[in-house]
Structure formats: structure tokens, C-alpha cells
Amino acid sequence: MTCYGLLGGMAVSGALEWPVAVAVGAATEVITREQAARKRAEQAGRQPGTEPSARTEAAQQTAMA
């Protein structure tokens, strides 16, 4: 969380352009969420990336209807 405050401070002070700060913050959030999802999948005994996506599940439900 400190990372976001630091990025915001750098953007406000002009040490970093705001689009760069937003991109770095967004990338950090995506990576953090992906790592957490992989960790949860490993703890549950599943391989990461083998869970069906919401799009796949919706298509299956539509096909069944």
C-alpha cells in the first residue's frame, strides 16, 4: 500500500508524470491479484489457469438452455 502513496507523491511533486504513475500502479495491482489467485489455486490443489472463465460458464449455460 505504501507503494501507491509514494507513486502519488511523486506524481504530485512532478518527479513522475501522472500517466506513468497510473500505469505502474495498475500493473502492480494486476500482478498482486494474479499472484494471490495462483496462491489460492495452489492451496486448493488445483493448477493455476485451469478454472473455467466466467465467459465459458455463461456459454455453457446458454447452450444448455
Rank of each mutant, 00 (worst) to 15 (best):
R38K: 09
V30N: 13
E57Y: 05
Q47C: 01
T28S: 12
Q60E: 10
A41E: 14
P52E: 12
S13T: 10
A63G: 13
A58C: 01
G45V: 00
A41W: 06
A27P: 01
P19M: 11
E42F: 07
E34L: 08
A58K: 14
P52D: 12
L7R: 07
A65L: 12
R38N: 12
Q35Y: 11
M64F: 07
P48A: 03
P52A: 15
Q47S: 02
A63E: 13
P48Y: 11
Q47L: 14
T28K: 00
E57M: 14
Q47R: 11
G5T: 05
A36I: 10
V30H: 09
T28I: 06
L16R: 02
S13K: 06
R40G: 02
G25L: 10
A58T: 02
A23S: 15
A23I: 06
E29S: 12
R38P: 01
S13M: 03
A23K: 13
R38A: 03
R33T: 01
Q61F: 05
P19H: 13
E29W: 02
T56K: 12
A11G: 11
V22Y: 08
V30C: 07
A65G: 13
M64T: 11
L6N: 05
L7M: 06
R55T: 04
A26L: 15
A63I: 02
S53K: 15
R38W: 11
G14N: 09
E34P: 00
G49A: 06
T28Y: 05
G9F: 03
E17T: 13
A37K: 13
L6V: 04
A15F: 10
Q35G: 08
S13A: 11
Y4M: 03
R33D: 03
Y4D: 12
Q43V: 00
E34C: 03
M10Y: 03
L7P: 08
C3P: 02
Q61N: 06
R38E: 09
M10V: 01
R33G: 01
M1I: 05
E51K: 12
T28G: 08
E51H: 11
A11N: 04
A36D: 15
A21F: 03
G49H: 04
A37P: 02
Y4S: 06
A65N: 12
P48Q: 03
R46Y: 06
G9K: 12
Y4H: 07
A44G: 09
E29Y: 02
A15C: 08
E42V: 07
V24R: 02
A26M: 13
P19F: 04
A15P: 04
E57R: 14
V24D: 00
W18R: 03
K39M: 07
A27Y: 05
A23Y: 10
R46C: 01
A37Y: 10
Q47D: 02
W18I: 08
E34I: 04
A59C: 06
A65C: 05
Q60Y: 04
T32R: 12
A36H: 12
V24W: 08
P48E: 02
T2D: 10
E17R: 15
C3E: 08
A27H: 04
